[in-house]
Amino acid sequence: MATTLKKTTNKTDIKYPIHDLLQKRWSPRAFSDKSIEPELLKQLFEAARWAPSSYNEQPWHFIAARKEDEEAFKKLSAVMNDFNRGWALAAPVLVLGLTKTTFEMNENSNPHAGHDLGQAISHLTFEASRHDLYVHQMAGILPDKAREIYDIAENVEPMTMFAIGYKEAASQLDDGLQEKEQAPNERKPLSDILTLNAG
């Protein structure tokens, strides 16, 4: 069912010009059940594949499930906590992001692995924005459940999940989440996060 959305962005405090895809990026909880075609989904992960990483290790790995594959989708949804499961099951795609915590070249600890996974997800997110798709990342996951279900190696860390889909109106959410969905997207002032030309 077609729905009219009131706004294309809820960023209200952009101080300097930035790319439209960065302005558009947002993490909704209200997702349409419209399917994402496999070829388009692979295009998003191709963007992730080309992210930079320490020593070009590319330590990230993704386990993805489309809602059309009911068994795989249900299996992956068990890795979310109850709160996230309450809204994310509406999305057509769920993804678990993992990162290898040791270097391939010498098996020493890779302290940058989480950072590199984040870069890959950022690349995916901006490619998604180009296709009017939205990504909502979730810290609320059950890593032990992920290990149990997917037999994950000790040196691989289940770190985050994210939902991918087309945005839907906030009215599909319960009252508490509707309020969050419609709130302004605020950030700290630039002066709080930037030290420029420090003496």
Rank of each mutant, 00 (worst) to 15 (best):
T99F: 14
G97N: 06
L94A: 04
I14M: 08
L117Q: 00
N56S: 10
P111S: 13
H19E: 10
N108G: 09
T125G: 09
K67D: 05
E68Y: 01
A30L: 02
H112M: 13
S129Q: 15
H131P: 06
W26T: 04
N110W: 07
K75G: 01
W26A: 08
I18H: 01
E46S: 08
H131C: 04
D151Q: 15
P92T: 06
D82N: 13
S77H: 07
M80K: 09
S122N: 02
L98T: 07
D144K: 12
F103K: 14
L142P: 00
K67S: 08
R147K: 15
G97Y: 11
S27G: 02
E39K: 11
A128C: 03
L40I: 09
K145D: 00
E107S: 15
E148Q: 15
I18C: 07
L40E: 10
H123N: 13
E39L: 07
E104Y: 14
L22H: 03
Y150T: 05
P38D: 05
P143E: 13
D144P: 01
P111R: 14
D151T: 11
S122T: 10
I152D: 12
P38M: 04
F62Q: 08
N81I: 11
S27P: 00
K100T: 14
V95Q: 12
I152K: 10
H123D: 01
E71T: 13
K34P: 02
L21F: 12
E107V: 07
H123L: 09
I63E: 07
E46K: 06
L124E: 04
L94P: 04
V79R: 11
Y55F: 15
I14D: 08
F45Q: 03
Q58R: 14
A139N: 03
L41K: 11
L22N: 00
I36A: 12
E127I: 00
N108D: 15
A47H: 00
W60C: 04
V79T: 13
K34V: 07
D144R: 07
K145W: 06
F31G: 11
S109M: 11
I149P: 14
H115A: 12
R25E: 06
Q23V: 09
E70W: 03
A88D: 02
I36Q: 09
A91Q: 03
L89R: 11
S27H: 01
S35A: 13
N106H: 12
W87S: 00
G86P: 03
K42G: 08
F45H: 03
V95T: 13
M138S: 02
D20N: 08
P59D: 01
